[in-house]
């Protein structure tokens, strides 16, 4: 352990991170290299070879020719025009794009579609059957588990996954296992109540 054993321990105050705002002014510019220099490598004009694959989305089989760079999220939204699934951050840090892939909840923004040839994908659009809402959809409305509604498709798909995983046994458990879905409006109490209600009905 402690590779730098010989280094002396630097005494210093327990600085608040907020002092970060105050310090550093007037020091040298931080970009030590011309902007985008790393982007120059590789051939900028390189063409992409499209890939063909199949995907079953909400029970419907699609044969798709896609750019390998496309995430499942972009395939859903831009290729299939299934815009119920939302792009909140595109960085795996908000959960708005949650869908089920082969039964498991994942963030579709960080999932390359080309790695999921033959996959079974379920999105918010597929939950309602013959005009009847899924119990969790109903519960989200009944318990006011939403406000603006933008995180809602991801919350509901995550909730479906959470219940299926058996992680909806108590309020605390739901809070823990639903923490991968941010709701900026703060509808969390309703979300927890909705998941608990739907889990109880199962």
């Amino acid at each position: 352990m402690v590779e730098n054993r010989s280094e002396s321990y630097v005494q210093g105050p327990v600085l608040s991170r907020r002092e970060a705002l105050l310090a550093g002014a007037g020091t040298v510019a931080l970009a030590a290299l011309p902007s985008q220099s790393t982007a120059a490598t590789g051939s900028p004009a390189k063409e992409v070879s499209p890939m063909t694959l199949t995907m079953t989305v909400n029970g419907e089989l699609h044969v798709l020719t896609i750019d390998p760079r496309q995430s499942i999220l972009d395939v859903l939204r831009e290729t299939l025009d299934l815009t119920g699934t939302k792009k909140g951050c595109n960085q795996g840090a908000c959960g708005a794009c949650t869908v089920l892939v082969d039964g498991k909840r994942i963030v579709s923004c960080l999932t390359l579609a080309c790695m999921h040839d033959g996959a079974r994908i379920e999105t918010i659009e597929g939950l309602e059957k013959d005009g009847v809402l899924h119990p969790l959809q109903e519960a989200f409305v009944a318990h006011e588990g939403l406000q603006c509604g933008f995180c809602t498709p991801g919350q509901i798909m995550s909730g479906v996954g959470c219940i299926a995983e058996g992680h909806a046994g108590s309020t605390d458990e739901i809070r823990f296992w639903m923490s991968g879905n941010i709701c900026r409006c703060g509808a969390y109490p309703g979300i927890v109540a909705a998941v608990a209600d739907a889990a109880g009905r199962d």
């Binding site: 299934l82 815009t83 119920g84 699934t85 999105t123 918010i124 659009e125 939950l127 309602e128 809402l133 959809q137 109903e138 989200f140 409305v141 009944a142 006011e144 939403l146 509604g149 809602t152 498709p153 509901i156």
Partner: peptide
């Protein structure tokens, strides 16, 4: 409950 609740929980709210 919200009159637009159904649109929001089905992904139909655009």
């Amino acid at each position: 409950t919200r009159v637009d609740g159904r649109a929001k929980v089905t992904g139909r709210a655009r």
